[in-house]
């Protein structure tokens, strides 16, 4: 086994533990921070997997997501997970089903190529001709903004739509109503 693989096993195990902790804690602030740990672990594993571009973006996005979630859900009184009304049977059935899925899919992973020997061959064209075709040293940015710029246009449109949806949902008659509330008090 290569040292890269050992490091990855270590970091992904931390991520799994972090996500279980995040889901099982009753306290919402702790859950959000635990998910932040998972995201930063993913950023470190991107760095180990030779993707510094993704590591930078994942790192700043994780910080931003944690700020959004904390700002949104912790306003005045401290929010705790409400005592669950779910019965234990449903949790048991879900766990057994997920375990069965995991056990049955183990044989699929044997069919995959071993770690570190990918099947993709199109990369060779980009690596060899990317710099001369586009003039950019960063091949990832050459792909997203030149070879596949149409993809990026669609992505920007999706982001625009998502943010527009956020603004629309939260803005409905908000200013008027809050003024009335303050006047009544």
């Amino acid at each position: 086994m290569m040292p890269t693989e050992i490091w990855l096993i270590f970091i992904i195990s931390i991520c799994i533990v972090g996500s279980i902790v995040a889901l099982e804690l009753k306290d919402i602030l702790s859950s959000i921070i635990a998910v932040g740990v998972v995201g930063l672990g993913i950023a470190v594993s991107f760095l180990i997997l030779q993707a510094p571009d993704l590591a930078v973006v994942q790192f700043v996005f994780e910080i931003f997501a944690v700020i959004i979630l904390v700002r949104a859900f912790l306003k005045k009184d401290y929010h705790k997970e409400e005592p669950s009304t779910i019965n234990k049977v449903l949790v048991g059935v879900t766990l057994i089903t997920l375990g069965a899925i995991f056990y049955l899919s183990l044989s699929v992973f044997k069919l995959l190529p071993p770690f570190g020997q990918p099947l993709f061959e199109t990369a060779q064209y980009y690596v060899q001709n990317g710099a001369t075709d586009t003039g950019a040293a960063n091949l990832v940015s050459a792909i997203i903004l030149d070879y596949r710029a149409y993809d990026t246009l669609g992505e920007v449109t999706v982001l625009f739509a998502a943010i527009l949806g956020t603004l629309t949902i939260l803005r409905i008659k908000k200013s008027k109503n809050s003024q009335e509330v303050t006047n009544e008090k």
Partner: peptide
């Protein structure tokens, strides 16, 4: 390493944040 999946994931991360919001 292959730059193509990295480019795909880069856009996917951004969309994820928009969806979260």
């Amino acid at each position: 390493v292959d730059p193509l999946p990295q480019a795909l994931v880069l856009t996917s991360i951004v969309i994820e944040l928009g969806t979260t919001a």
